[in-house]
Design a protein around this nucleic acid. Structure first.
Length: 292
DNA sequence: CAATTGACCTGTGTGC
DNA sequence: TGCACACAGGTCAATT
């Protein structure tokens, strides 16, 4: 599934292959793909047709592409995309056969490769949103910056984290606190920081928060390196999975396999309706759990 | 107001 | 062979 590094790879691909091109035609093949565009499918199509996509930006796992009017003036709006769990943005020759789960297609006035949104499970989606020139769309304002962003503020993150009364894994997954961290990176970061996900955030020391943040930063950096290996291809691909998943995961999906640090068997626990993986030796459960 | 839970979705794998 | 069901999990509305 697309995680932050894969989304960043997609952003780079869009920047390279799509930015600067003018849309000639838009097809929506599944209404659910544009459900976040509240004015409806027709409005979505009309808002994009004839406009130029001028750039590609990312905030957490969200992407947005600002648009320009036919005369070149900024339109004050942007195409916003979220890949959900199975979404892909592909740049393909027009004669490539349609994918089974093709949800939307964008053709361009240059007659070149088209942009396709393919999404098996339709958790992802597209919308046209207000977006001030050079700024963040207000609809994405609640998404916090990520540690790869120059604007990320370590001190305010640390303070916010320790002000919370919740478990540390919940906090890592809370996009209003830190952007871009999903289930996989949360588990990997916690393992690196030797913290169990159920540790209460308000009891974390400054040093533990610092270790945790370093873990997040390292795992994002390393996986971006992996996911980045294929971004030179013509496809704006989401399959960064191959390299990263097989080689770099210490605990995620590694139930019963030895912890790379101490050899203890990794355990899987159910948490927030999803799986959590950890090393019971390196990441002991807290004695007093967060909550009430 | 902060924390937490459930709905949304479909392909894949497993057990009976 | 076919069926039922668990699982994957990001986001947001609804609820506590």
């Amino acid at each position: 599934m697309p995680e932050l590094p894969e989304v960043e790879v997609v952003r780079r691909g869009l920047e390279r292959w799509v930015a600067g091109r003018r849309i000639s035609q838009v097809e929506v093949h599944h209404p659910r793909a544009v459900r976040r565009h509240l004015e409806g499918t027709d409005h979505f199509v009309a808002a994009l047709t004839g406009r130029t996509l001028t750039a590609a930006h990312r905030r957490g796992k969200y992407l947005w592409l600002p648009m320009a009017e036919p005369d070149g003036a900024p339109s004050g709006r942007a195409l916003v995309a979220h890949l959900g769990m199975s979404g892909q943005l592909l740049v393909e020759k027009p004669d490539e056969p349609d994918e089974v789960h093709l949800r939307a297609r964008f053709r361009f006035t240059d007659g070149g490769r088209e942009l396709r949104f393919v999404d098996q499970r339709t958790f992802g989606g597209l919308a046209v949103e207000e977006a001030p020139a050079g700024g963040l769309p207000p609809r994405l304002a609640h998404i916090a910056t990520d540690p790869l962003d120059a604007a990320f503020d370590v001190d305010s993150f640390s303070a916010a984290l320790r002000r919370r009364h919740t478990e540390v894994k919940r906090a890592l997954l809370d996009q209003t606190l830190i952007g871009g961290v999903g289930n996989i990176y949360a588990d990997e970061s916690l393992w690196r920081a030797r913290l169990h996900g159920a540790r209460p955030t308000d009891k974390l020391t400054r040093a533990q928060v610092s270790d945790l943040l370093e873990g997040v930063r390292d795992v994002l950096d390393e996986s971006l390196e992996q996911g980045g290996t294929s971004f030179d291809s013509l496809y704006v691909d989401v399959n960064g999975q191959s390299g990263y998943f097989s080689r770099h995961l210490a605990v995620y999906g590694q139930e019963d396999r030895p912890c790379p640090r101490c050899g203890t068997a990794v355990v899987r626990e159910s948490f927030m309706n999803r799986s959590s993986y950890s090393c019971p030796q390196c990441q002991p459960r807290p004695r007093v759990r967060a909550g009430r």
